[in-house]
């Protein structure tokens, strides 16, 4: 298996498993309870697992080399700005245009913005996914010593 993929799975399998377990538990609990308050609480069950996944991703980002960190941060900043603008525009269209827009559209907009921003920033730095196999920056670095 690709060492980067192996490392990714080792880092993320526990929070991912916890997330799916919480999603299933939330679905089962919300079906079995009649109280609206309990259904809301059940719906919030996956949030701690999501926070765990975000923390793992942040730790992974901090381990990467500085150009890769810059690419990820630039892409996230651009994606946030674009998706916020589009979602805000869609919200106003929904409010004043009397058009029913599904909530999951926001998730699609965010995902598409992130992919677009990744392509844009990676093109700027000539850093493509196929080159990540060459990126030895996954492991913590040693002190630099002159030859």
């Amino acid at each position: 298996m690709n060492p980067i993929l192996r490392r990714y799975i080792a880092d993320t399998w526990m929070p991912t498993l916890a997330y799916f377990a919480c999603v299933i538990a939330a679905a089962v609990l919300s079906e079995r309870t009649g109280s609206a308050t309990l259904r809301v609480l059940a719906g919030m069950l996956p949030l701690p697992a999501l926070a765990w996944m975000a923390w793992v991703e942040l730790k992974r980002l901090r381990r990467r080399d500085e150009l890769r960190q810059r690419i990820e941060l630039e892409a996230m900043t651009i994606a946030f700005a674009i998706s916020f603008g589009i979602v805000a525009a869609l919200t106003f269209i929904g409010l004043y245009g009397r058009i029913e827009l599904p909530l999951h559209l926001a998730a699609l907009v965010m995902a598409a913005s992130w992919i677009g921003a990744q392509l844009w920033v990676r093109a700027r730095y000539h850093y493509w996914w196929r080159q990540e196999g060459e990126d030895a920056a996954e492991e913590p670095r040693n002190e630099v010593t002159p030859p």
Partner: peptide, 12 residues
């Protein structure tokens, strides 16, 4: 490798 960064970083 000597600097502990990727080849892409050196190139950039």
């Amino acid at each position: 490798d000597e600097l502990g960064v990727s080849r892409q970083t050196v190139n950039a």
